[in-house]
């Protein structure tokens, strides 16, 4: 079922992924955890994650493309609201978000975006 090519992709992909982590280990030895540089990289890490999450919600790739932007934002809003109403219960918030997305998708249908 598989041609040999995919194993080369896995090998190259695994090495490329590990390279980003190994680079981090090598460079981290010169990083002072109390220094300004550390704060800066930490801020970049948080900003990157926020950008990544915003992309997943606003510009999804794959199955989620079938849902409307308004539905995804409403689901996120429901999750956030429940999160703060329940004293930061992530489980309750996640369930609320999923129920909202499923409900809205069923009501609106995938075509009406």
């Amino acid at each position: 079922m598989d041609d040999g090519g995919v194993w080369w992709v896995l090998l190259v992909g695994g090495l490329a992924t590990y390279a980003t982590r190994a680079l981090g280990v090598v460079l981290s030895n010169r990083l002072d955890p109390d220094g300004a540089m550390f704060d800066w990289i930490s801020a970049i890490a948080y900003a990157l994650l926020a950008a990544l999450v915003a992309r997943m919600i606003l510009l999804p790739v794959g199955v989620l493309e079938a849902t409307g932007l308004a539905e995804r934002i409403a689901a996120l809003a429901a999750g956030v609201m429940v999160y703060f109403r329940t004293h930061r219960n992530v489980l309750a918030a996640v369930v609320a978000g999923l129920v909202t997305l499923a409900g809205l998708s069923a009501l609106v249908g995938p075509e009406a975006m």
């Binding site: 919600i57 996120l76 999750g79 999923l98 499923a102």
Partner: peptide
């Protein structure tokens, strides 16, 4: 499938909001 895929961004959003 939709729910499973949406779980990830939803959870990460809440983690970041908590941070």
């Amino acid at each position: 499938t939709l729910g499973l895929v949406f779980l990830n961004p939803l959870y990460f959003s809440l983690l970041l909001i908590g941070d």
